[in-house]
């Protein structure tokens, strides 16, 4: 897959003026431009503290000494580089939709990666497959490395079954109080993805959940007597398969179930201050960017 397919020039141009929105002060690593919880050498004033022997006398605020006749040091916030992690659900169900949910997920991952690098942060992509969490590339922090990483990202395939909880938990470098962890999935799974979110929050990561759904899933156009076979089911006898007489009543029930599912996800995320938005695959990426991502305060 060509990298341009994931992130074209038009989109890059739109992203130039955007940045990831990190709500809290993270630890991060040296060299970035994100405000951190530490005092450092940036130009942004943070606080005063009394002078102690050994402190750098260049940071004494002499004006304050003149008024209070006591020595105070002037503290400035430290700016650090954050490390964002993007977990992409690569289960078989992601291969469905027009266009495929998987492609939309990858484009979103590329978009976030570009914003991260633009903000002088690092970004890592992880493919969630089975119970594992495969690193697509090493952490990317430069634009050159970004596009190389996007090539690798474009090669990610989906298939099989994914346990989001186990996969995220098996992440080699989940980070701690360092950047945003994105989970991109259709969330149509029996696995407990909420535990994965809780686990990331436990790691003091900011979490952003992006649900990718196809139009067929949001409003299916099925009817009649069907044996619905889950794409992740390997056999016909799989418990996830269902025989149904799909009619008006069933469609109403589906709509209600879908609405309930969305509300449940939103409710869960709101309670934990996790940012969430859902995107249909047939929506333009620019619309995703400005309508969903900005509204959900994922980017600014």
């Amino acid at each position: 897959m060509d990298k341009r397919n994931l992130l074209d020039d038009e989109m890059i141009a739109l992203l130039e003026s955007r940045d990831l929105n990190i709500r809290s002060l993270m630890d991060g690593m040296f060299g970035g431009k994100r405000r951190s919880a530490y005092y450092g050498t940036s130009m942004e004033f943070a606080d005063f503290r009394e002078y102690a022997p050994g402190d750098d006398i260049r940071r004494i605020d002499w004006n304050l000494y003149g008024r209070l006749d006591k020595l105070y040091l002037k503290l400035f916030t430290d700016e650090r580089r954050q490390h964002h992690r993007i977990y992409i659900d690569c289960s078989a169900s992601m291969a469905w939709g027009k266009p495929e949910k998987h492609l939309t997920a990858l484009r979103l991952a590329a978009l976030i990666g570009y914003l991260a690098v633009s903000g002088m942060d690092k970004v890592s992509w992880y493919a969630l497959e089975g119970n594992g969490c495969l690193s697509v590339t090493d952490a990317v922090s430069s634009r050159d490395a970004l596009f190389t990483g996007l090539e690798r990202l474009g090669e990610v395939q989906c298939g099989g079954e994914t346990d989001i909880e186990a996969s995220v938990a098996s992440s080699p470098l989940p980070g701690y109080h360092d950047g945003i962890s994105f989970i991109i999935s259709d969330l149509l799974t029996d696995s407990d993805w909420k535990s994965a979110v809780d686990w990331l929050l436990y790691k003091k990561q900011e979490v952003c959940v992006i649900q990718v759904l196809s139009r067929d899933e949001m409003a299916p156009a099925l009817s009649g007597k069907l044996h619905l076979m889950d794409s992740e089911a390997e056999t016909e006898d799989d418990s996830r398969n269902r025989r149904m007489n799909i009619g008006r009543q069933r469609m109403l029930a589906y709509a209600a179930a879908y609405e309930w599912l969305e509300n449940d996800i939103k409710s869960f995320c709101n309670k934990r201050q996790v940012r969430f938005f859902s995107v249909p695959t047939d929506e333009k990426l620019s619309r995703m960017l400005f309508d969903k991502a900005i509204r959900s305060e994922m980017i600014q």
Partner: peptide, 14 residues
């Protein structure tokens, strides 16, 4: 019943 493969039967089951 006619076999029809769908991405996920999760919402259907729901």
């Amino acid at each position: 019943h006619e076999n029809r493969r769908v991405s996920s039967s999760y919402i259907w089951r729901l």
